[in-house]
Design a protein around this nucleic acid. Structure first.
Lengths: 127, 127
DNA sequence: GGTTGACCTGGAGTGCACTCCAGCTCCTAC
DNA sequence: GTAGGAGCTGGAGTGCACTCCAGGTCAACC
């Protein structure tokens, strides 16, 4: 299967402009072109794009994704380095989740506080 | 207790520049000044700063924090609206955590994949 | 009384990740 | 054969959240 840029955008969740931007900065390899010079994305291209969106979602900076892309480009010899990157990134995602979780606790506490105020207020009115 | 801007920065985890910036954009009330015209933060100022850093950590945009700050400024009458904001924000934080968790799963999968490659490689060598 | 260090102000600059635009080409459908 | 729509390029613009800077003040210590 091949996909137009619009289809690739829809399937990856990136915008058309972002796809071209990623190509420009070397985050994705230039896809094939059709007879009219238009980009034609393959399934492989697509799965790379989808993977990139995962990395992006987890907050990996573009510069690091690009580093990963470059290693990937150099083939199997860099697999260890790539694994290492994912390893470290996984740790940072876990930390991030823990951090969010702890802020969530504060939020819960604060909301409970507001609920208590409301409760007090209602009591005051009905008393 | 009162705190110099350097102390407030250290205790809140924000930079000195960020403290002044937050004041400029109306995210924090201008703190008291000492005899020399220097900022003198109170414990209340500090706890607001700390709370702001929680909101920031959870990804609340400054514009929303400012909205919250303005409501807070208008007193108890806005408590319901503020609670509502925290409520909605809590939902978005939960979603964010779920999203991170699901990307984490992909990461695990990918790392396992690299480990399998390594394993195969070792087998190939020792075979 | 001079130097040092923390702090002050207004304003400019930075880094990131897009996003938009003008002006063009190409294919398709009428 | 022409109108419309998708896509093309290079480059400019945007929004966010800071971060830095020059030039100045102030209090304290030597």
């Amino acid at each position: 299967m091949t996909y137009s840029i619009a289809q690739a955008a829809e399937r990856s969740g990136l915008s058309i402009d972002t796809l071209r931007y990623y190509e420009r900065i070397g985050l994705v390899d230039p896809p094939a072109r059709d007879s009219g010079g238009r980009r034609s994305y393959s399934d492989d291209d697509l799965s790379w794009l989808v993977f990139l969106t995962r990395l992006r979602t987890t907050g990996m900076p573009i510069r690091m994704m690009r580093e990963y892309a470059q290693l990937r480009h150099r083939g199997a010899a860099t697999a260890g380095r790539r694994k290492q990157m994912l390893f470290e990134h996984r740790a940072s995602v876990r930390e991030r989740i823990a951090e969010l979780q702890s802020c969530l606790d504060v939020l819960e506490y604060k909301i409970a506080h507001y609920e208590q105020i409301e409760h007090t207020f209602v009591e005051g009115v009905t008393a």
